[in-house]
Every structure is written in C-alpha cells, then in structure tokens.
C-alpha cells in the first residue's frame, strides 16, 4: 500500500513526465515541419566542412589539450563533494537538534580535506591554463 504522500510524489513526477513528453512532441513537430517545407538541393561543395572558404585539411578530430581532461577529473571529485554537501545542508537544522555542534564539525572536517585537495592542485599548477613552466604539472614537484 502506498501512503498519501507517496501517491502525491508519484503524481507530481508523472505530471513532469507528461511535460517532458510535451517537449519531445514539440521538438519532433518542429523537425517534421521543417522537413515538410525545406528545399533539398545538396551538392559536394555545399556539404563540405566549413573552413572560411578554404578546403579543410586533415581530420577534424584533432588531438586537444590534455588540460580539458584534467579539468574533467577535478570536476568529478568536487561534484561528488557537492552531492554530499547538499543533503547535509537540507538536514542541517534537524542534525543540529539531534547531534548538536557535531553536525557542524563533521562536515567541516570533510570540507577541510577537500579544501586541502584544491590547494594541492593549485600549488602543483593543475589549475593553471597557461603553463609558464612545462614541467610544473608533473615531473617537477614545486611544492
């Protein structure tokens, strides 16, 4: 048996789902409308890759800067942190009533460790986009 609050939660989510379906229908309708009316007149020059009037040279899937990858890894670490903090924040008042000041300190020990992690990345130069010293981000521990 579902409690009334569970029914209301599933009701709200089902309405949200209907809204999402509305969005899908809207987008599909746009594409179909476009398909009905648009002219179709392709030729090789028109379908070539845009390159300011030049012929495109080489593969478009070039090697890109490794820093994008490092940023993505850093993001993963700190995003998990955000996911951990948000439920704590919502329950903070209740936690404070039951645990007292401990609710505050437990989270800030965690935050301090992550802050140290950020400081470590900063000092090691992983947050620098333009590397002054190419060795700074690896072999040469500048810390």
């Amino acid at each position: 048996m579902e409690t009334p609050s569970e029914i209301s939660v599933s009701l709200e989510f089902s309405i949200a789902l209907i809204f999402i379906l509305t969005a899908v229908v809207f987008v599909g309708g746009n594409l179909i409308l476009n398909r009905l009316f648009r002219p179709r007149n392709p030729y090789p020059e028109k379908n070539s890759t845009y390159e300011c009037g030049e012929h495109s040279v080489g593969s478009p899937w070039i090697r890109f800067n490794i820093r994008y990858y490092i940023i993505a890894i850093l993001f993963l670490i700190f995003d998990v942190e955000v996911l951990f903090i948000i439920p704590w924040a919502v329950q903070f008042k209740k936690l404070y009533e039951s645990l007292g000041i401990l609710a505050f300190f437990e989270m800030f020990v965690f935050l301090l460790i992550l802050g140290l992690g950020l400081a470590y990345c900063w000092v090691k130069g992983h947050l620098e986009w333009v590397l002054k010293d190419r060795k700074a981000a690896g072999s040469n521990p500048g810390i």
Binding site: L33, N34, R35, R38, S48, Y50
Partner: peptide, 9 residues
C-alpha cells in the same frame, strides 16, 4: 522553417 538543412559529409 523554409531554409535548407545542411548536414556536412
């Protein structure tokens, strides 16, 4: 809506 839709090769 009336513009041609180009998908590059």
């Amino acid at each position: 809506v009336f513009k041609e839709d180009i998908i590059p090769n």
